[in-house]
Design a protein around this nucleic acid. Structure first.
Lengths: 227, 227
DNA sequence: AACATAATGGCACCGAGTCCCGTTTCATGT
DNA sequence: ACATGAAACGGGACTCGGTGCCATTATGTT
């Protein structure tokens, strides 16, 4: 869809009028959703109300988002698309886990301005809404699957032949979940500087840091002893 | 609920008549569900039909299972309950990952007879039904969470303080997912003996073996190199 | 200006899940 | 054996997410 055909509109962001309208509708839906859900709770807002506020028909909504959960967690979806794309582009020898890790932090830091605010709003919703939390888990697992498929192509192997591929994908996203959880909780490895103010949780930089810390902890986790 | 109060029924499995009837209804629902879903597909069977075949009211169904997905994946739920219970009981020093691993394989091997057939039927359904696959992922993630809570109590730590706890929980269930996937696919580390006949997939023993292989592969996965 | 195509939104429909409430079935004490 | 209280049951109405159909409108093209 984002492929450029004839551009009759030299003005704007280089997209056709139709494309710009679609982008705009998509944004309006996501923004209104985050606002309404934040105000009154995910399950106390019906799609009827959401689409009314966004001034689109109910039918149109489903042409932009696959489900009510989907629009609430849109920010996460954008991160995963960017992550998989980056990892697929990434070329270079070295440890696979390091590559997975580097691509993830780079992706986080490269997300467009304002992304972190939308993301943290989603996470806040998910914290109090089981179905949203589930949606988040599933989307991260789907990301692991997509990473594995990239690895399979790169190494020309089947992940059923070599269990290591799947383990790596699972592990990378596991580390992400640890890091993200600690980020929204406002807790760090050692200290949480006062600078980590509530609303933004310190921004993408701190999120990336939390994820790095989780990756760092992997060897120590394997060695953890029970008393 | 399974606590023993006055037992007016010395006959049977040591449960009251009411309790036995409930167990029976629960089984009937799960069995009919697996049969109908297997015959015509998960989303081509309505709850109306399911409850009609099981001869219970629609209302009653939801007193036994939380959702349509839940009854389809009941076998998995039983495994997780048993796993968490065993790990909570498990006492003994040593590497935590080893304990998680041992408890999992022991739990698999200790599941009641016939469990593996129901389980493999569930997995087969899930393979062709996205919502069931999602349900499976979420229930394994919830299990990781429960294991983490056990670890927290054991070590008297918060998993936000010590990222290693969460990483371990994630890793254990990640290894499970790898092993289970290879088991249903009928693929092994090196070879798949002819003995691994289709329907039962070699039974719990082979499943446990696949999971062990996944745990074994963890160090090698961390060291995997990209060309 | 006329045409082709894509997006829109109204409408009817399906089915999962919740709630309420009257009825039935089991457990228990006399 | 029978009465009583509690628990399970099931019918029916309701909400709401999600799908399919189709006429209408808006955009891009010639």
């Amino acid at each position: 869809m984002p492929v450029d055909s004839g551009h009759p509109e030299p003005e704007g962001s280089g997209l056709s009028l139709r494309e710009r309208k679609k982008q705009r509708t998509r944004r309006v839906l996501a923004d209104t959703a985050l606002r309404l859900f934040g105000e009154r709770g995910f399950d106390r807002v019906t799609l009827e109300e959401l689409t009314a506020h966004a001034e689109v028909g109910r039918t149109t909504f489903f042409r932009y988002y696959a489900s009510k959960e989907d629009v609430a967690m849109a920010a996460e979806g954008e991160l995963w698309d960017a992550y998989v794309a980056r990892f697929a582009r990434h070329t270079g020898p070295g440890p696979a886990l390091t590559a997975l890790r580097a691509c993830l932090t780079q992706t986080i830091l490269a997300m467009p301005a304002g992304w972190d605010r939308r993301f943290v709003a989603s996470r806040r919703l998910a914290a109090g809404t089981p179905v949203l939390h589930h949606h988040s888990l599933v989307s991260s697992m789907r990301t692991a699957q997509r990473l594995i498929e990239v690895l399979e192509r790169r190494l020309d192997t089947d992940s059923r032949e070599d269990v290591r591929l799947r383990l790596l994908g699972e592990l990378a996203l596991g580390a992400w979940r640890c890091g993200a959880r600690n980020w929204v909780a406002g807790r760090g490895e050692h200290e949480t500087p006062v600078a980590a103010r509530r609303p933004g949780h310190g921004g993408p930089a701190l999120l990336a840091r939390r994820v790095e810390e989780s990756f760092d902890a992997i060897p120590a986790a394997l060695a953890l002893d029970l008393p």
